[in-house]
Write a protein that binds this DNA or RNA. Structure first.
Lengths: 150, 150
DNA sequence: GAAAAATAAATTGTGCACAATCAAACATTA
DNA sequence: TAATGTTTGATTGTGCACAATTTATTTTTC
């Protein structure tokens, strides 16, 4: 079905295969899909898992702090956190000392998930099949890009 | 399985800063945001731009072929393509020789966007501030990961 | 200390992503 | 060729993402 390239598109940067950004977009989605069977066992989505990574470490954080660390805004976080509150994984309450802020705090049911999640990072590293060196190199480039774009 | 973790190292894998996947997720979203002002001028979203990259090169493709190249399924593509059809950028019709397939064909208004988009790749390369070598290295790693995960 | 500016969430609306299900068209084979 | 199985899109429902606006609260400035 695919027709031969048209003259205007020959050797162009406007070709999917010459794009650098598409692989980022594709890999990001494939990684989320690779997490899916592992997270589904915990009834979690990938963004919810990211919130838990922070809460397991910090016990409680404001919505603003979560947003700064995950690079997400309240339009994304508020409904997501409400769904997690419904499941009794965390609590949402205003900071008495600054009523503008909402404090997200880990609840026992949320803490209990930590033990069940502890195999996930190694299982994912396994799926990626990359050497220690490749991973280090990639992390360096990604961090550079991240600071460049953020 | 990779290397067995020491007790202390095991816990640290469940920290956001030690995640490899989060930077992919974050960079992917930041890249899309970096495209946004450039694409908004053409009334395009990033996934729509990706569809155009393929149509500018191939003139016409089936939904299945678009899905294979972009790693997207019909649940994503069908409504996206309908929105693009509304704007007269492309046509959707069944293949007379196999009524199961839908052929997506570029229309003049869609072709006209190509010239207005041709600066985008260089502008994006500029935003990323990476050397030729870094880009090549990154593309290699990403391609490896992509085949590993796809 | 009142008005103005800044900050933090919530809300609204649009557009992906994707799992799951369905229906139609085509291919296979007994 | 009738029954079975496969392929292709469409549909439905849920959950992000994010721009833009709104509301409540706090801080700053005059």
């Amino acid at each position: 079905m695919a027709t031969p390239p048209t003259p205007s598109a020959k050797n162009s940067l406007l070709k999917l295969e010459n794009q650098l950004c598409f692989p980022f977009y594709a890999v990001s989605r494939l990684l989320t899909k690779a997490y899916q069977p592992l997270l589904q066992a915990l009834d979690l989505t990938y963004p919810q898992y990211l919130v838990f990574l922070l809460l397991w470490e910090h016990e409680q954080l404001t919505v603003k702090e979560l947003g700064e660390k995950l690079l997400l805004d309240s339009g994304t976080l508020t409904p997501l956190l409400k769904r997690m509150e419904q499941k009794q994984w965390l609590s949402r309450r205003r900071d008495p000392r600054d009523e503008r802020s909402v404090i997200i705090a880990l609840l026992p049911a949320g803490r209990a998930l930590e033990a069940r999640a502890d195999q996930i990072p190694l299982l994912m590293l396994d799926k990626m099949q990359m050497s220690e060196g490749e991973i280090t190199a990639l992390r360096t480039h990604l961090t550079h890009l991240l600071t460049q774009l953020a």
